[in-house]
């Protein structure tokens, strides 16, 4: 067991896969997410590799991948802090194609998550509550509200490929 912090064990499901190098920390309760993150950060997981989101249509899971620079023991491991949000009950907003989901931002815990959360926000429509500067980062300004990385995103494909003869 690499994660031996009792707070985390109590509030989250932990699944350590040595072969794939992932320690999966699945948080069920949104309110305890920040505490779990703080405990991880105190343990020595000091930076965020990536923030991403997986769209399962009925639910979306937001994932923070964190690892350690300073602690030799944790250097080789990546913790996958995961939380699921149920999207089936969300009411579509007329302004956007798909409703935005809300999770707490972890920028206060890991400052390095700032740009990753901005990217996940514009790609998946995740509203990170408490993010200091939640703007778009990669996409053009007029693209806001379309959440292109979600599975229901479509666009007109005409003119993509040449026809022969």
């Amino acid at each position: 067991m690499i994660i031996n912090n009792e707070d985390i064990i109590k509030t989250a499901k932990i699944n350590e896969d040595e072969k794939k190098g992932i320690i999966d920390v699945f948080v069920t309760d949104v309110n305890s997410l920040k505490n779990v993150a703080l405990s991880l950060s105190k343990m020595g997981f000091d930076h965020c590799l990536s923030v991403t989101c997986v769209d399962y249509r009925s639910r979306m899971s937001v994932i923070w991948h964190v690892s350690s620079y300073s602690n030799d023991e944790y250097k080789g491991h990546v913790v996958q802090l995961r939380i699921d949000v149920d999207t089936s009950k969300l009411v579509p907003d007329p302004k956007y194609r798909a409703p935005m989901i809300e999770v707490p931002s972890l920028v206060e815990v890991w400052k390095s998550a700032e740009f990753h959360e901005r990217e996940t926000h514009e790609m998946f429509g995740v509203n990170f509550q408490g993010h200091p500067d939640l703007r778009q980062i990669l996409l053009p300004e007029d693209f806001y509200g379309k959440w292109p990385m979600r599975k229901d995103f479509t666009f007109n494909k005409s003119g993509i490929k040449y026809e022969f003869e």
């Binding site: 300073s70 400052k111 390095s112």
Partner: peptide, 10 residues
């Protein structure tokens, strides 16, 4: 950028 800042900026 000192050591701690580099770690926190990731």
């Amino acid at each position: 950028v000192d050591r701690n800042r580099a770690i926190s900026l990731g």
